[in-house]
Design a protein around this nucleic acid. Structure first.
Length: 272
DNA sequence: ATTCTGTCCTGTAGGC
DNA sequence: TGCCTACAGGACAGAA
């Protein structure tokens, strides 16, 4: 579910609400989301303080005084802080409950149970984190890097944008939106892009992610921020979820197709 | 070595 | 109302 802008929004929220608090108790309501021995998981967490809240790609990272809790929300995971005294309680989808100091509670909700939680001593011990490509909003992701990466691939460009080894944090929504902004059809072969198109795509990726972070993410369905609220970027979507509606740029009907078993949305007139 | 499928799950929306 | 099908912000093992 959450892509980079959503996870970044949660990170910012939690960095304000739970940083510095101590994990007093951890209640595993469904062990399927724990990707290691539950006993190891529990003993690595209880009594630890949350030093900072970080993000890498679509993964949320709680830095502890001795270790890191890596959370991959996948499609429907949420990490919501319940304020002390708030009436909100852990609901049906609560899979892990973290009881914190100062009467705070952090709940990991996950409808579909695809999410993964794992505690590691160092981040390079985490297989997924280790495999991640550069952060798209940081220096390591340059137009030159993108051009070089696309040039040696003959796959369709959209699934490639969603490949976290190439660049971290881009999922189905923002891949579709970036390709629209860049005027590139999702099924174009990566190595067929002209230099000018790669440049446009690079700028589009950075622009759409930055705007979505500013809007606190996209809530199409399950996504909620670190306090359980919806994001705002769904109002700014140009193609995602808009099949059959007019293109906001040219008026043509937005098309939907399936690519790599994922829905893809595009304007056949604005994108080539 | 790459690239493409199937699978992990549950809930909801829409068609009949 | 109820049943059935399609589909959902991801990632990865195994197959081709």
């Amino acid at each position: 579910m959450p892509e980079l802008p959503e996870v970044e929004t949660i990170r910012r929220d939690l960095d304000l609400s739970v940083k510095g608090l101590v994990i007093r108790e951890v209640i595993i309501k469904d062990p399927r989301v724990i990707r290691q021995d539950p006993k190891t998981f529990l003993s690595a967490l209880c009594g630890r303080a949350i030093v900072s809240v970080q993000r890498r790609g679509k993964a949320l990272i709680l830095e502890l005084n001795g270790g890191f809790l890596v959370v991959q929300p996948m499609m429907t995971g949420q990490l919501v802080a319940l304020a002390p005294g708030s009436k909100a309680a852990a609901g049906r989808d609560a899979r892990v409950v973290f009881v914190l100091s100062k009467n705070q509670t952090l709940v990991y909700n996950d409808q579909r149970l695809f999410g993964r939680l794992e505690v590691v001593g160092a981040l390079n011990e985490h297989a997924h984190i280790r495999a991640l490509g550069p952060e798209p909003l940081e220096k390591g992701f340059s137009a030159g890097y993108l051009a070089a990466a696309l040039a040696q691939k003959r796959t369709a460009v959209k699934p490639l944008l969603m490949d976290h080894r190439l660049v971290a944090g881009i999922g189905n929504i923002y891949a579709a939106e970036a390709l629209f902004l860049a005027g590139i059809l999702p099924d174009r072969r990566a190595n067929s892009l002209q230099a000018s198109e790669v440049k446009a795509l690079y700028r589009a990726i950075r622009a759409v992610l930055a705007r979505a972070v500013k809007a606190r993410g996209t809530s199409v369905r399950n996504y909620r921020d670190g306090e359980g609220r919806e994001g705002g970027f769904q109002k700014a979507l140009k193609v995602y979820g808009r099949a059959g509606q007019p293109c906001l740029q040219c008026g043509a009907v937005i098309q939907k197709s399936v690519q790599s078993q994922r829905s893809t949305f595009f304007c056949g007139k604005c994108q080539q």
